[in-house]
Design a binder for these strands. Sequence first.
DNA 1: GCTATGACAAGGA
DNA 2: CTCCTTGCCATAG
Length: 125
Amino acid sequence: MSAFKNKVLQIVKLIPKGQVASYGQVALMAGIPKAALQVGYILQLHGDKEDIPWWRVINSSGRISIKNPEHAPIEQKQLLEKDGVLVDEKFNINIKKYRFLPDPNILEDLELNSIYIQMILEKYY
DNA sequence: GCTATGACAAGGA
DNA sequence: CTCCTTGCCATAG
Protein backbone atom coordinates (compact mmCIF):
# COMPACT_ATOMS: atom_id res chain seq x y z
CA MET A 1 0.00 0.00 0.00
CA SER A 2 1.50 3.27 -1.05
CA ALA A 3 1.30 6.32 1.16
CA PHE A 4 -0.68 8.13 -1.47
CA LYS A 5 -3.34 5.46 -1.62
CA ASN A 6 -3.72 5.43 2.15
CA LYS A 7 -4.00 9.19 2.25
CA VAL A 8 -6.70 9.21 -0.39
CA LEU A 9 -8.78 6.62 1.41
CA GLN A 10 -8.26 8.41 4.70
CA ILE A 11 -9.34 11.74 3.25
CA VAL A 12 -12.43 10.42 1.53
CA LYS A 13 -13.52 9.00 4.85
CA LEU A 14 -13.31 12.50 6.29
CA ILE A 15 -15.96 13.88 3.95
CA PRO A 16 -19.09 14.41 6.05
CA LYS A 17 -22.53 13.32 5.00
CA GLY A 18 -24.16 16.01 2.92
CA GLN A 19 -20.91 17.31 1.50
CA VAL A 20 -18.81 16.51 -1.55
CA ALA A 21 -15.23 16.95 -2.73
CA SER A 22 -13.64 17.01 -6.18
CA TYR A 23 -11.01 14.51 -7.31
CA GLY A 24 -8.50 17.31 -7.61
CA GLN A 25 -9.26 18.47 -4.12
CA VAL A 26 -8.67 15.03 -2.67
CA ALA A 27 -5.44 14.71 -4.63
CA LEU A 28 -4.29 18.06 -3.33
CA MET A 29 -5.12 17.09 0.22
CA ALA A 30 -3.16 13.89 -0.30
CA GLY A 31 -0.13 16.01 -1.16
CA ILE A 32 -0.02 15.39 -4.92
CA PRO A 33 -1.95 18.22 -6.59
CA LYS A 34 -1.98 16.75 -10.05
CA ALA A 35 -2.95 13.19 -9.28
CA ALA A 36 -6.70 13.66 -9.58
CA LEU A 37 -6.94 10.84 -12.07
CA GLN A 38 -5.37 8.43 -9.64
CA VAL A 39 -7.91 9.32 -6.99
CA GLY A 40 -10.64 8.01 -9.24
CA TYR A 41 -8.61 4.95 -9.98
CA ILE A 42 -8.05 4.21 -6.32
CA LEU A 43 -11.70 4.64 -5.52
CA GLN A 44 -12.56 2.27 -8.31
CA LEU A 45 -10.36 -0.38 -6.74
CA HIS A 46 -11.12 0.17 -3.08
CA GLY A 47 -14.27 2.24 -2.99
CA ASP A 48 -16.67 -0.56 -2.31
CA LYS A 49 -14.33 -2.94 -0.55
CA GLU A 50 -13.76 -0.72 2.42
CA ASP A 51 -15.54 1.78 4.52
CA ILE A 52 -15.26 4.50 1.92
CA PRO A 53 -17.97 7.01 0.94
CA TRP A 54 -16.72 7.06 -2.64
CA TRP A 55 -19.90 8.66 -3.94
CA ARG A 56 -19.01 11.92 -2.22
CA VAL A 57 -16.23 12.51 -4.74
CA ILE A 58 -17.15 14.17 -8.03
CA ASN A 59 -15.30 16.08 -10.75
CA SER A 60 -14.41 19.74 -10.59
CA SER A 61 -17.29 20.89 -12.77
CA GLY A 62 -19.73 19.48 -10.26
CA ARG A 63 -20.80 16.51 -12.30
CA ILE A 64 -20.82 12.78 -11.72
CA SER A 65 -18.28 11.37 -14.13
CA ILE A 66 -18.34 7.70 -13.40
CA LYS A 67 -18.30 5.11 -16.13
CA ASN A 68 -17.69 1.98 -14.15
CA PRO A 69 -20.40 -0.60 -14.93
CA GLU A 70 -20.14 -1.79 -11.33
CA HIS A 71 -21.48 1.54 -10.19
CA ALA A 72 -23.72 3.34 -12.63
CA PRO A 73 -24.09 7.10 -12.31
CA ILE A 74 -27.66 6.60 -11.17
CA GLU A 75 -26.41 4.68 -8.17
CA GLN A 76 -24.13 7.51 -7.14
CA LYS A 77 -26.98 9.95 -7.62
CA GLN A 78 -29.18 7.94 -5.30
CA LEU A 79 -26.49 7.64 -2.66
CA LEU A 80 -25.90 11.39 -2.77
CA GLU A 81 -29.58 12.15 -2.48
CA LYS A 82 -29.70 9.89 0.52
CA ASP A 83 -27.09 12.21 2.00
CA GLY A 84 -29.36 15.14 1.25
CA VAL A 85 -27.38 16.35 -1.77
CA LEU A 86 -29.42 17.50 -4.76
CA VAL A 87 -28.52 15.93 -8.10
CA ASP A 88 -30.37 16.73 -11.31
CA GLU A 89 -31.18 14.45 -14.25
CA LYS A 90 -27.94 15.34 -15.97
CA PHE A 91 -26.00 14.38 -12.86
CA ASN A 92 -25.07 17.96 -12.09
CA ILE A 93 -24.43 19.03 -8.52
CA ASN A 94 -24.09 22.47 -6.98
CA ILE A 95 -20.55 21.85 -5.81
CA LYS A 96 -20.17 25.36 -4.50
CA LYS A 97 -22.95 24.71 -2.08
CA TYR A 98 -21.89 21.27 -0.91
CA ARG A 99 -18.11 21.38 -1.19
CA PHE A 100 -16.21 19.90 1.71
CA LEU A 101 -14.25 22.73 3.30
CA PRO A 102 -11.87 21.09 5.76
CA ASP A 103 -10.65 22.92 8.83
CA PRO A 104 -6.95 23.72 8.83
CA ASN A 105 -6.68 21.53 11.93
CA ILE A 106 -7.88 18.53 9.96
CA LEU A 107 -5.30 19.26 7.32
CA GLU A 108 -2.65 19.37 10.01
CA ASP A 109 -3.61 15.87 11.01
CA LEU A 110 -2.80 14.73 7.51
CA GLU A 111 0.78 15.89 8.03
CA LEU A 112 0.28 18.10 5.03
CA ASN A 113 2.84 20.66 4.01
CA SER A 114 1.80 24.19 4.85
CA ILE A 115 2.27 25.00 1.21
CA TYR A 116 -0.57 22.66 0.27
CA ILE A 117 -2.76 23.93 3.05
CA GLN A 118 -2.26 27.37 1.60
CA MET A 119 -3.21 26.14 -1.85
CA ILE A 120 -6.40 24.60 -0.55
CA LEU A 121 -7.40 27.73 1.30
CA GLU A 122 -6.78 29.90 -1.74
CA LYS A 123 -8.52 27.56 -4.11
CA TYR A 124 -11.70 26.72 -2.31
CA TYR A 125 -12.41 29.18 0.46
C1' DG B 1 12.19 -0.17 -15.60
C1' DC B 2 8.95 0.87 -19.43
C1' DT B 3 4.35 1.43 -21.57
C1' DA B 4 -0.53 1.93 -21.45
C1' DT B 5 -4.36 3.42 -18.98
C1' DG B 6 -7.66 6.56 -17.16
C1' DA B 7 -14.24 7.74 -11.68
C1' DC B 8 -9.43 14.27 -13.71
C1' DA B 9 -8.30 19.51 -14.35
C1' DA B 10 -7.83 23.65 -16.82
C1' DG B 11 -7.99 26.33 -20.72
C1' DG B 12 -9.20 27.16 -25.58
C1' DA B 13 -12.45 26.75 -29.71
C1' DC C 1 -22.78 24.78 -22.61
C1' DT C 2 -20.17 21.04 -25.23
C1' DC C 3 -16.08 19.11 -27.35
C1' DC C 4 -11.06 18.76 -27.69
C1' DT C 5 -6.17 19.17 -26.28
C1' DT C 6 -2.55 19.00 -23.11
C1' DG C 7 -0.50 18.13 -18.81
C1' DC C 8 -0.06 14.69 -15.12
C1' DC C 9 1.20 10.70 -12.40
C1' DA C 10 0.05 6.31 -9.46
C1' DT C 11 -1.08 1.56 -10.83
C1' DA C 12 -1.09 -2.65 -13.56
C1' DG C 13 0.93 -5.73 -16.55
